[in-house]
Simulated scan of single mutants.
Amino acid sequence: MRARLVGVAVHLPESRLDNAELVRRVSSASDGFVPPADLVRRLAGVTTRHLMPDDWQASDLAVAAAGKLLAETGTAVGEVDLLMFASASQDLCEPATGHIVAAKLGASCPVFDVKNACNSVLNAIELADALIAAGRYRRILIACGEAPSRAIRWRVADLAQYLSAFAGYTMSDAGAALLLAPGPAGPADPGVLACAFTADSTAWQVGTLPGGGSAFPRDPERTYFELDGAGLRKAFEALGPELPLETLRRLGLRWEDFAVVAAHQVSLDYLEVFRSGLGIPQDRLVVTLPDHGNVASASLPLQLVRAREESRCGPGDLVALVGLAGGVSLGIVVLRL
């Protein structure tokens, strides 16, 4: 047996924030500082992002996506026997946000959270595959709610502080959901064909959101993203291309065999560096960053949904999900739809 992907759905809040409005908001909240008008687009390639309603939480984004997925797949919430909330965001430090999602959905199954920055959903897929293969569960719902807009620094003292908080200006709110169930494990059968991960945890300090944990439990100045962009890129480059390339060799596959290669997107510049370094054909990518921003761990499900809507992939096709996350970690999941 292997886990097969029954369905995937996303929820994107209707409210949008373009770069001009971003500059206006930062300028009006700050004492004389005005951000360079085109800096976010030039450095990251982002032109607009989604903002969830003020009275929503990360769990609401996850519930919106999960409700859409259950309806699309004809799955009753009572048929789900494990719910994983997989996200960099969370409603509270305690309890697990999975409980809040389950309560809002009306689910009564076991729950837990999976948290590994922008690779949270990718790690949850690996866990779901292992648990289904072991016969522990039959229908696993992975629900994701990313709410980075709550960690945007609007009041900025100067350019140095703006650049330190720059990651927040590229990010976007979104919900995502995936449903996995058992299926046969023949060579042509749909399902998860491979999962592989690596990490360099010595680089954990290059990108952080420090507040709310034991290190900075009550410091409001630590509730914003802090990023060393050059250090993050250097850490990712140090991981190298070997993990995904070895995964493909083990499966006897080439990038050209895939209908779609979904890769996490932090900036358009680094996406091209990453694509070129791995030898991924340009036409296999699904570029969502300019119009939707960096939606953290919802990025790969979003790209998969967009590819499906554009008829770029369908039943029987191979897709690869390649994740990059602060910490730092790199992962790949290979699926046959």
Rank of each mutant, 00 (worst) to 15 (best):
G207V: 04
A235F: 06
Q282M: 10
L227T: 00
A263R: 05
V273C: 05
P220Q: 06
V261I: 12
V206P: 01
Q282N: 13
T202V: 14
F197W: 09
R218I: 13
A196V: 13
R218V: 14
E272W: 08
S214A: 15
L227Q: 00
Y270L: 14
F225R: 04
G211C: 05
T202Q: 09
Q282G: 11
W204T: 11
C195P: 02
E221Q: 08
A263T: 07
Y270K: 09
A203I: 12
R233D: 05
E242P: 11
T208F: 00
T202W: 03
E221C: 07
G252W: 09
A199V: 11
G211N: 04
G252S: 10
W255I: 07
W255S: 00
V287G: 07
T247Y: 03
F258T: 06
R222Y: 09
T288N: 09
A262P: 00
F258C: 04
A203R: 04
C195R: 02
G211K: 07
D200T: 15
G240T: 12
T208S: 08
G240Q: 06
P217S: 09
Y224T: 09
E246D: 15
G231D: 04
L271Y: 03
R218S: 13
P220A: 13
L227F: 02
E221K: 10
P281L: 01
L278G: 06
A263F: 00
I280T: 04
D257Y: 04
A194V: 09
D219G: 07
